[in-house]
Design a protein around this nucleic acid. Structure first.
Lengths: 176, 176
DNA sequence: TACGAAATGTGTACGGTGCTCACAATGGAG
DNA sequence: CTCCATTGTGAGCACCGTACACATTTCGTA
């Protein structure tokens, strides 16, 4: 559904693809990795641009929020890449692949995990609730992203979307 | 991508479709409506089978949980229908269509809205937080459903998925 | 009951897709 | 220079969604 179109844009014969990828899906998987890497650096940038907090608890919280807003911002700025990033993503195994990582060497999911660890360290998140918490936070933000770009919430302007996003992150922060 | 396959299963010529639907997308949209209706009745059933609570606050809370678990159960029991239900869903306008409703005449989103209203009525959810709350709760559950059936969480067995689901709902309940 | 129109189904054809395969062209190691 | 691995090519296959002219069925009305 994209292969021939892609080759056309690059100005190359459709069959050339098969010298580099086994499948249409293998090609798509490569794009998916690249997209996740892009997402990772977008998140890293979001965190880097945040005002530094002195209190470690505040800092950890802010970091988590940064990941969430970065995730949502990326989904809205680059809906195509975002869709692709999770369209054909494999299981959790290759979710740790270096090809899916940002400049820090961490994938988006690993960045989230690190933030949650900080939260535990700072005593904000009870240690007992830590295992699997990444999936809870991720679910919430990922779900909103989906609803915003494809689902029934598409068409919300940037400000409204930002607002819902912040409220969602509030909910996660309170509920984790 | 499905049209010819569908006609084959029904035992009918591919072109017949165009007597009833304008497009491949129009057909898909009809299936989408049917799938959402199925989801609505699945949720209704989940709620109906719950033990009745006397305390209105407890009842409202239980109702919300029922919607969440019903949603997740449906996604796992009928992943194909679930995917379809939100694959080509239009905007919020036709999300209220009768064709997408269950036996109660309410669509999944409307059921969720009603549950949140009860929560406000029972004094559990502050009135100020009510507007837009359906999208927060929905995001969380929808995101997990996606991760479970297509995303990196696919392959979790039913028990593990159930566990993550309940924890997610805990989070929503606390965080709303 | 008979007729004519609307509804429904069909076969063929067109351009698009992913993919295979035999066949160049290229370019670096020996 | 000569191999040989790498990369690109074009024709062709089976499939897809769609259009259109043509049969068949259904059914309200005269």
């Amino acid at each position: 559904m994209v292969l021939r179109e892609a080759t056309r844009r690059v100005g190359v014969a459709p069959s050339s693809v098969y010298r580099h990828f086994a499948d249409r899906l293998a090609l798509l998987d490569a794009v998916c990795s690249a997209a996740q890497a892009d997402l990772a650096v977008a998140i890293e940038k979001e965190i880097a641009e945040m005002p530094r907090e002195k209190d470690s608890a505040r800092a950890a919280r802010a970091c988590l929020r940064g990941i969430g807003t970065g995730y949502l911002r990326f989904a809205q700025t680059e809906p195509g890449l975002f869709r692709t990033a999770f369209s054909a993503s494999g299981d959790l195994r290759n979710a740790a692949s270096r090809a899916r990582a940002g400049e820090s060497g961490l994938t988006p999911l690993q960045l989230l995990g690190a933030a949650l660890d900080e939260l535990v360290e700072a005593g904000v998140l009870p240690r007992g609730r830590r295992p699997g918490a990444e999936f809870l936070a991720w679910s919430a933000v990922h779900g909103l992203a989906m609803l915003l770009i494809d689902g029934p919430l598409r068409g919300l302007d940037h400000a409204e979307a930002q607002n819902v996003g912040q409220r969602l992150i509030d909910m996660v922060e309170r509920g984790l």
